[in-house]
């Protein structure tokens, strides 16, 4: 284990210890202990109810991140290259980023009703500006000297996107993707809690109503697990691939 891994492991242990200490000092109706949460999760893992809700949330988060990330990247690339487009899109970007998430939930429920479309729409709408802003900033920071090289050697538009802009913004873009993954999971749970009849958020609502606190924390652990899968299994290897030239 290297220094970074050791420190991360220590931080993780401190977090668990803090949780355990808090749980020992609070009523169990307010906070389940880590052991209760893990035991409850283990029991849930043996029920089809868990997998039905887990998989539907994974599907919604994935679709939301794909739509939000892709549209943020495409519009961010265009706006980064063309200032006029950036100025045109700025009011929309400001509107979406300034609007409270709960209002977007209400509007999405009004437009799409309860269920997956509403949740995916919400995740996409809230995450797209994050990718958009990072892409624009990344492209604006691309080395002007390299842009001159691309002009001299007459790189066509898509060659510039692939070989100049995309690698140049890989750093800020991967940071944005990690951010929207965490954000996407949180939004999915909130959207499902408020307007869906399946998914982790829906299950959280049920456990809250029934005061099943260990199960509630088991679902929280499940959400963290989903974010960890996205971040460490999917995005980190992609990030490492794009940033390999820095090693």
């Amino acid at each position: 284990m290297n220094r970074q891994q050791v420190l991360t492991a220590i931080g993780f242990m401190l977090l668990l210890s803090g949780w355990q200490i808090l749980a020992m000092n609070m009523h169990q109706i307010l906070l389940a202990s880590p052991i209760q949460a893990i035991t409850s999760l283990w029991e849930m893992l043996h029920t089809p109810y868990f997998y039905d809700n887990f998989l539907i949330s994974i599907k919604r988060i994935s679709l939301g991140i794909i739509f939000g990330g892709f549209s943020g990247f495409v519009f961010g690339t265009i706006a980064g290259i063309n200032q006029n487009i950036k100025y045109l899109l700025d009011p929309l970007r400001w509107l979406i980023m300034s609007m409270p998430s709960v209002i977007i939930v209400v509007l999405a429920m009004l437009w799409f009703g309860m269920g997956s479309t509403m949740a995916v729409f919400m995740i996409a709408v809230i995450t797209a500006p994050v990718v958009y802003v990072n892409t624009v900033k990344g492209i604006e920071a691309v080395d002007k000297e390299l842009i001159e090289v691309a002009k001299i050697y007459k790189f066509p538009f898509f060659t510039r996107i692939k070989n100049l802009y995309t690698p140049a913004i890989a750093g800020p873009l991967s940071a944005a993707i990690v951010m929207i993954t965490c954000q996407g999971a949180r939004i999915a749970v909130m959207a499902e809690l408020l307007g869906a009849n399946e998914g982790i958020g829906y299950a959280v609502g049920i456990t809250r109503s029934n005061l099943e606190i260990p199960q509630l924390f088991a679902w929280i652990l499940t959400t963290l697990f989903i974010v960890a899968i996205f971040e460490f299994v999917l995005f980190r290897p992609i990030q490492n691939y794009f940033m390999r030239w820095q090693r």
Binding site: L146, V149, P167, A170
Partner: peptide, 19 residues
């Protein structure tokens, strides 16, 4: 003014392929 994310040979290959 080499592209830092491309190897030495890739820096030469790219303009050649574009041309």
């Amino acid at each position: 003014r080499l592209f830092p994310w491309k190897t030495a040979i890739e820096n030469i290959l790219l303009p050649l392929m574009v041309s």
